[in-house]
Design a binder for these strands. Structure first.
Lengths: 336, 336
DNA sequence: TTGTGTTATGTAAGCAGTTACATTTTTGCA
DNA sequence: TGCAAAAATGTAACTGCTTACATAACACAA
């Protein structure tokens, strides 16, 4: 069933049918109704490929994300997909893993599928070495690229992010104010977002006059799901003679690792060990006591990112970078 | 840059360029290399829409899932996406929520985008009332439909699932054998999979000669992420005079709710309350003690589902239904 | 009734590929 | 060296839609 069949049955030309299809107002109401009736009657659906060829778009957005099974990223995808759908766009999901080569080839695939825009979910897509960001800049030469929780200063690349530096700074100060001056920053990535958190931590420690050797940091290199391995790392670290009575974790997974560590060492939370996580995902209520975590307004970020993209596609001006501030949600792992 | 430009620069016809593009072997090695070189040189990428129009496929699969932020579904999507990619297919992700109307419209959208197949992730797409499954049957008239953890007996619909009945039966028997005869089945959905688990539970209780009034079931209707609400429901249930010393939870989220309940009631796990979850997702190691859970081999299921789909698309015969058995992974919430 | 300005409709040329069929070139063997 | 079969290449029709431009229909004032 093609536009030709419909035009024949309706006794009009294909141009008229096409006009009805595209909601052009240069069609008389009578003709329009007739055509619509015929379409309905025969269950006609326009061929998306032909349409794409003519309009040079199929209204799809490419979403890239390292690992869609990470709770935080999964949630982001969920929010973004929903907004896109409401705006009449589909999304092609591409889970790339953390390997640059795979990211590049996925990016190329999306471009070759002629998506209207690309969204990079998570800060791990941006590398320190600018050469390694070339694939993003190249992509941005074709379609707008939106970054969630990362920044890249390049044309046609837009960033929406939470102010990780400020919120980690605040969390650290709060913990210090509660009487803990040997705080450990526990993190698992050297991404843009990871670094900003670390900077916030360092700045807060410095501003509270903690000597550098008391502001410890510990890096976890395993899978984000491997809570036992996180706990083990902390145990080893402690056994090596490092003391700390507070942990600022770069995400909630790591914070759960810290809780497990405390359980295994027989430490009481928050008295022996206070913990603050990041992301405020559902994990916070899985543990006992419940986890204090920084809510970085993911839904807000995602909605903003998506509507910015819509604006860009509609030719409106949009700021290159928008930052939202987070909020500490206090629960049982921190002192009053 | 089109196939015409390339053909001109390479001094061959467009047909030859097209043949090179499609890996036809009716091209001399010399010509092929020349064309490839020119393509490389000019950074040519074929237009996906034109290609789609000619070939009537763009090698994309539609994935529908109610909520991609559910850990289990997110994991499934992750596995499926990876396999599809390895087979040269992209996937369009559609998060439908639990509302039938949305499912139907999403399905139509995918069909109109001319996907080569549709994968329904999760058993909530199948309804008891066959009329409500019409949207699936209609879709299957166009493209193969693959179900994960659900069954629908209709042409061109294929199922890959875990044997939930058997594994829940086994889990219940194990718990009974460990000395608990007042077991509560705690569940949150009336889906195909939910019902099969319930059947397994009932059958096991019956086979162990537990009177029906000792085989209790409790339904939770809230969000899958709302652990506190699950705990509260259990507290209320207990306060209403119901006793139980074991819980078989239909998923790990519910099991965490049960753990929280135990914590709040001051019950010790597993002595006062034993718990078995389903899905064996990463949540099992978030809690203390760690959760005994039924591993239903999600990765295996996803791989099988995807490769079946590939077989179908390649014209190979494939069984309509494949079932895999699960395995209980014993951890701290059950007695030795 | 005619002329003019709208509004509605039709014609045909794209869009960028694929592929059946025709034609040319190459290969291998008598 | 000639010839048939096989391999390589080219021509042109086709995929199904959009849209610029041409044309027809209509409304309304002079």
């Amino acid at each position: 069933m093609t536009i030709y069949d419909i035009s024949e049955k309706a006794g009009v030309s294909i141009a008229t049918v096409s006009r009805v299809l595209n909601g052009s107002n240069n069609v008389s109401e009578k003709t329009k109704q007739k055509v619509l009736r015929i379409m309905e009657e025969y269950g006609y659906t326009p061929n998306a490929f032909a349409r794409g060829l003519g309009l040079n778009t199929m209204k799809t957005i490419g979403i890239m994300c390292a690992d869609s099974s990470d709770l935080y990223l999964a949630k982001a995808i969920y929010f973004i997909e929903r907004e896109l759908r409401l705006n009449g766009y589909d999304c092609i999901l591409s889970c790339t893993g953390y390997d640059l080569a795979t990211k590049i080839s996925s990016m190329n695939l999306l471009i070759s599928k002629k998506v209207d825009g690309i969204i990079l979910v998570g800060s791990n897509f941006i590398y320190e070495d600018m050469d390694e960001n070339k694939y993003i800049i190249d992509a941005a030469a074709q379609v707008p690229v939106m970054l969630l929780n990362a920044v890249l200063d390049a044309p046609n690349v837009y960033s929406t992010l939470s102010d990780d530096l400020a919120s980690t700074y605040e969390a650290t100060c709060q913990m210090y104010a509660s009487g803990i001056d040997d705080i450990l920053f526990f993190y698992n990535s050297h991404t843009y977002s990871g670094k900003r958190k670390m900077s916030g931590f360092s700045a807060a420690m410095k501003d509270n006059n903690i000597p550098a050797d008391r502001a410890r940091t510990l890096y976890f290199s395993g899978s984000h799901e491997d809570i036992p391995a996180m706990a083990k790392l902390l145990i080893d670290y402690h056994m090596a003679g490092n003391t700390f009575h507070g942990i600022i974790a770069a995400d909630d997974y790591l914070a759960l690792g810290a809780i497990k560590y405390a359980k295994e060492m027989g430490l009481s939370i928050p008295d022996d060990l206070a913990i603050i996580g990041h992301n405020n995902c559902m994990l916070v209520s899985c543990c006992h006591p419940e986890l204090t975590s920084i809510d970085n307004k993911l839904e807000l970020l995602c909605n903003h990112l998506t509507s910015s993209l819509m604006d860009i596609l509609n030719g409106k001006e949009t700021p290159e970078k928008t930052m939202f501030s987070g909020e500490i949600i206090n629960r049982g792992t921190t002192r009053n």
